[in-house]
Design a protein around this nucleic acid. Structure first.
Length: 117
RNA sequence: CGAGGGGAAACAGAUGGUCGCUCUUCUUGAGUUCCUGCGAAACAGGAUCUCAGGAGGGGAGGAAAGUCCGAGCUCCACAGGGCAGGGUGGUCCGUAAUACGGACUGCUCCGUUCUUCAAAAAGGACGGGGUAAGGAAAGUGCCACAGAAAAGAAACCGCCCCGUGAAGUAGGCUUAGCCGCCACUUCACAGGGUAAGGGUGAAAAGGCGAGGUAAGAGCUCACCAGUAUCCUAAGCGAUGAGGAUAGCUUGGUAAACCCCACCCGGAGCAAGACCAAAUAGGUUCCGUUUCUCCCCCGUGGAUGGGCAACUUUGCCUAUUCCGCAGGAGGGGGGUAAGAAAAGCCCAUUCAAAUUUGUCCCGGGGCUUCGCAUCGGGGCAGAGGCGGGACGGGUGAGGUCGCUUGAGACCCUGAGCAAUCAGGGCCCUAGAUAAAUGGCCAUCUCCAGAUUCCCACUGAAAAGCGGGAUCCGGAAGACAGAACUCGGCUUAUCGUUCCCUUCGUCAC
RNA sequence: UGGGGGAUCGUUCAAUGGUAGGACAACGGACUCUGACUCCGUGAAUCGAGGUUCGACUCCUCGUCCCCCAG
């Protein structure tokens, strides 16, 4: 977290999001799959010059407030750490059932394990 | 003072910094397309769109939730009437409307107090809570167990009357005994009257008393309770108060069927409208070709082979199971063999193909009518190919709908209130894999916790309250707009107020 | 988003408003040298709250959870 990075690079714009169902289907079917205690990561090489992120939180995870918080925490992590991820990938993060993360630091520690940061 | 329950109101941390998200306004740079400038190029101006930025402004809730009601809005359907189905149910008012709200009435429950009273219990007054609260006298059904009986009041026990028979008594006579008509008692039988009594049940056919009777009975009468009708005055009304009359009395259940009165077209913003594109097949129309034979593709059947779930049998094993041990059996492992139906793949072979119908002309055959066949032509039908139109299916985009509304806030007035009227002022979220977040600092905060001090109670231990300090803490509950409103219901941290219950202390 | 259905012993199914019943499983016993089969017995439940009713698994209201259908 040195301050050398160009201003504005911590943004999370619309084209960095995966929005179409066929993209989700393609990546989750043929991408690589890594899982940890509370998350599952699908990744696949992309032709774009940047990373893209999609988040999956099923309805069985919890009520709408909790689902929104999980999406915000994952988005915050991607926004702050996307420059430290090597390569150009399409990423999908899915939250597992029974997840009980409440604070950002817990999520950050666990997600760092995926990318060896 | 503390704890519990119920209700109401307000808030749902604040300030600053920083990194972001979304909408919108303005703007800078680059580029695409179009128009204008004599206009081909270059250049200039304007519009639209895309990308990369900059500045300003807005950005979740009291329940956004559940989807239980009611509407707006959109589309579809629609002559009129009825049936079916669904909903509502005291009265009046409010509202766009409601299964909502307010006030009142009835019923019911609780508390306080008064009266009768030994108590229980009953009644009155006041306060609070609940209430889906039309009809059981239109009809049908049900009311377990217990009980004589659970709904036409009848059967049973019981009570009573009359008759017959038997026994006995009082009594009589012709007195070892007999009679016993009339009278009485008991028993049995037959006929009749009765609903007082039967203490079971959640509920028992009005209650108490008097008359009356063979025994009884609202059979009659007085009082009381209840029903219906009428009258008087009160209230808009539900209804309550008083009086008269009648029949004398009617079980409960309609959140059982049902009856009565009133109301209801269906679907829902994933409604609906527009734009741009992809694909196999369907229906229909037109054109062409074939309907002799052959070939190819395709379809179906048969045979063979392969894949394989699986199944069965034989053999072996005892390192591991049940068993004290062994046999038998079961279970485990290994090996070998087999493999039904259906499925997929490959090879061979066979079959059906629409080898059509009708009319006209011509040739030959049968003695004629006529029939069969061959060739040509017309019409119809079927199949193939090409083209057009139509409707919808599948997967997946964009724009609009999309936030000014029965709107919020303040003041005044009307009304018991719900609410309404007038005036002022304001614009206050519009996402679509789905926007409000992360981090840091400070302030107040304490539901955790250390130590110390003070006050009260207490012999002490200790309890409780207040203050200071330190550590710690996620500012902590329920919870995230999805077309928009009005209600209802449910969830909920802390603070304040009101009501109520309990405990402790003091007077 | 709209519509429909359901929740009963550990599991799976019953039950005209009137004592919640089977089957499998569990436990105990009998039979057998032992096991299996069979027989006998025992325990165990109406999703939660409120209402109607003399009485509720059943009827009504609210809530929780689950399943199915359409797009």
């Amino acid at each position: 977290m040195t301050g050398i990075i160009v201003k504005g690079s911590f943004r999370f714009t619309k084209k960095e999001r995966i929005a179409h169902p066929q993209d989700f289907r393609r990546i989750m079917k043929s991408g690589r799959r890594v899982s940890s205690r509370n998350f599952v990561l699908f990744m696949m090489k992309s032709e774009n010059m940047f990373h893209r992120l999609g988040i999956v939180v099923k309805k069985e995870i919890g009520p709408a407030t909790f689902r929104n918080r999980m999406k915000r925490l994952i988005r915050e992590f991607f926004r702050l750490h996307k420059h430290q991820i090597r390569g150009r990938y399409d990423l999908i993060l899915m939250v597992k059932k029974g997840c009980s993360i409440n604070r950002y630091q817990e999520a950050e520690e666990e997600l760092k394990g995926f990318f060896n940061i």
